Amino acid sequence: MGRDEVISIFREAGAYLEGHFILTSGLRSPIFLQKARVFMHAHLTERLCRALGARIRAEVEGRIDTLVGPAVGGLIPAYETSRHLSVPSVYVEREAGEFRLRRFELEPASRVVVVEDIVTTGLSIRETVACLEKLDVEVLAAACIIDRSAGKADVGVPLIALAQYEVPAYPADALPPELAAIPPVKPGSRGL
């Protein structure tokens, strides 16, 4: 599955939004990819995650024991992708501001892949990798449906993206005039 097909799925689900958005990273963008609108359609989610699973299988050598999704955004894609890889899926969640594997255990030396929905700066994946490294597991790679940075985000491990789609993002104090003229909306989940 290529970038155009992935973006077409987002458009079909009404998940390709245009306006002035405050991203989870704090940056501002004229485009927001509202993956929740895709994830509400099981058949669309299944198509994306089946393709992501195939990409992971093609790029990761050896066995994968578990997929780990950062809450909230990685829960659904990690779960659905795990179905196509026939491995368990678990998730990290914030506790006192840090990601922790609160509800699950991973065996030391487990081979894991972090699965996220959309990457902009890679912060959630870096925080997930840091959490997992404390547990002595081997993080083989991270994977996402869309890499908004088009390969520029450093997530600390190899990043496998179903699609790279560079979307402009700006600091709040450096907005282009046409974006500054639109009232901002914050549709993401971080900080809730």
Rank of each mutant, 00 (worst) to 15 (best):
130 A>P: 03
63 R>T: 07
13 A>R: 06
66 T>D: 02
179 L>A: 14
114 V>W: 11
184 P>H: 10
179 L>K: 11
83 R>D: 00
168 P>T: 07
157 V>Y: 03
28 R>Y: 15
87 V>F: 08
70 P>Y: 01
185 V>F: 07
168 P>K: 04
96 A>E: 07
92 V>M: 03
113 V>E: 04
125 I>G: 13
77 P>R: 02
153 A>M: 07
65 D>R: 06
157 V>S: 04
77 P>Q: 00
99 F>R: 15
46 E>W: 15
109 A>V: 11
129 V>S: 05
11 R>M: 13
35 K>R: 08
20 H>E: 06
49 C>R: 15
9 I>R: 08
105 E>F: 12
36 A>P: 00
22 I>K: 05
1 M>P: 15
108 P>R: 07
170 Y>T: 10
10 F>H: 02
182 I>A: 12
3 R>T: 14
140 L>C: 00
188 G>I: 11
58 A>C: 04
164 Q>L: 08
16 Y>Q: 10
179 L>T: 14
45 T>L: 14
135 L>T: 08
192 L>C: 05
76 I>V: 10
81 T>R: 01
29 S>N: 04
139 V>Y: 01
141 A>I: 02
69 G>S: 05
94 R>V: 00
190 R>M: 08
92 V>Q: 09
137 V>A: 09
77 P>F: 02
164 Q>M: 12
158 P>V: 03
144 C>H: 00
153 A>N: 10
27 L>Y: 05
54 A>T: 05
4 D>S: 13
27 L>M: 13
71 A>D: 09
144 C>W: 01
106 L>F: 09
151 G>S: 03
119 V>F: 12
22 I>G: 02
62 G>Y: 04
190 R>T: 12
158 P>N: 10
127 E>D: 11
78 A>M: 02
43 H>R: 15
30 P>T: 12
14 G>Q: 15
99 F>E: 03
64 I>Q: 09
139 V>W: 01
99 F>W: 08
186 K>D: 08
130 A>F: 03
117 D>Q: 03
121 T>W: 09
140 L>T: 01
33 L>H: 09
112 V>W: 07
45 T>V: 06
59 E>F: 05
65 D>N: 11
136 D>A: 14
104 F>R: 14
38 V>P: 15
2 G>F: 01
23 L>Q: 05
177 P>D: 07
104 F>P: 01
187 P>T: 11
62 G>P: 00
188 G>W: 11
84 H>C: 02
127 E>W: 03
37 R>D: 15
177 P>C: 08
27 L>R: 15
183 P>N: 07
184 P>E: 08
165 Y>T: 05
147 D>F: 11
38 V>Y: 11
